[in-house]
Amino acid sequence: MKPLRLPFAFDPRFLPVLAPLGVTETSGARVELDEHRLLVRFGAWSVSTPVRNLAGAQLAGPFSAPKVIGPHLSLADRGVTFGTNTRRGVCIRFHRPVPGLEPLGLLRHPGVTVTVRDPELLAAAVEEHAERTRRTTNRRADPTPQPGRVRRACAIMRYPAGLALSTARYLRCSRRVRRTEEVGDATDLPPALPREALDAHLKVIDEGAGPLLHRTFRVRIRDADLGAEALMDRICADLDRAAPSEVTSFRKLRGRLGELRPGDEYVVRMPAPWSGPVRVLRRDRTSFRFATLADHLEAGQIEFAAHDVEGGLEFGIEAWCRPGSRAAAVVLDTIGVGKEIQLHMWTQFCVAACEVAGGRMDGPIRVHTRRCGWPAPERPGPSAGGNTPA
């Protein structure tokens, strides 16, 4: 499909209303659609989303001028309208809401209505993309039965005491953590996502809003009773075996209990407003990898792996993530609270993996962080531009 670049259709009667908003026929107000994303620009406002998030489109109009001219928020469904005339427009629907009207991305819209010059052409193009993604978006693992209200309430009630215990563990464990940090580059990009795994629910790293953090957490295990494969089998059967249970739990949302397979979905529950839904992308004998889903505080991937090495085992966690929104970037990167919570959570997971293996830590937990801006800068030399292979 050829990329589309459609300008808005302006009605001269409303130019005096739109001009103070920075929306004129020469301001670049337009809709762009290609094989990768939809972009709507309207003065100081913009809406951008990957094409796999397009659920459909329909023609709309005529409209009432007070309800369509300029940027408008629908109080009924929180949809956003960017209007320049009252004749015709296109209502584009999304699988998952996207930000648009306010800069922090806290307000999200399930759809956008635009009054472009060729609404029929735009509606047909959006429908073509939507038809491609409906097949993958609707192909998900079966829902997993969830615990009852009593069990959920008991889990929430343990959080206050859990936070105190978690803080004590964080202070005690910090002496056993060796941290290093350096500037990253394009070689820190995550593994390429298989095309068949992409759907509207996946939140890929391009949808983030801050710097890329490529972090590794590794621990050596000696005197273990289990090998790498047996350790990963035991962890995959119940992820809560290795999670810091005082504040964190892995609740399975899709897929069968007692196993971990590609397509299964979990939510990482925490006593904070950033519980993280994830999907299993890959599982082999000694590793598995998650990708973030919509509503996760971050956007990216994380891999858990064990290896048989001389003298024992090595267990590691590798994360490639960006903050999922501008507000998340403040929490995760500017203030750094989220970064420290992540460090505590995954170092405790490494400690618990030693216990599951029946061994003990051999040396410190090594935490290495490579931080780079976005887009990730290329590394000078022949290795520039390479992504980690899938």
Rank of each mutant, 00 (worst) to 15 (best):
G338W: 01
E303S: 11
Y170L: 08
V278I: 10
P382V: 03
A141D: 04
F250A: 12
R218E: 13
P380A: 11
H214E: 04
R152I: 00
P389H: 11
G312S: 06
A230Q: 13
A376R: 01
L257G: 10
A197H: 14
I335H: 07
K252N: 00
G255D: 01
P190N: 10
L107V: 14
V267N: 02
P145D: 08
D223P: 02
P262R: 05
P147R: 10
L106V: 12
I92W: 09
T347G: 07
L171C: 09
A306N: 03
P160I: 01
S46Y: 15
A294E: 13
T388N: 09
C154E: 11
P119F: 05
A228D: 02
E25N: 06
L231P: 02
F250G: 03
R175I: 00
E265P: 02
D206N: 12
C173Q: 14
G276A: 15
G210A: 07
R283F: 04
E25K: 12
A327Q: 08
G373Q: 07
T115F: 03
D362C: 09
E196V: 10
R169C: 07
I365N: 02
R322N: 05
L33P: 01
E265Q: 14
I365G: 02
T115D: 06
A9S: 12
D118Q: 14
T84L: 03
V40E: 04
Q301F: 01
E196T: 12
D240N: 15
P16E: 06
P97E: 05
F14W: 14
H296D: 13
V278H: 00
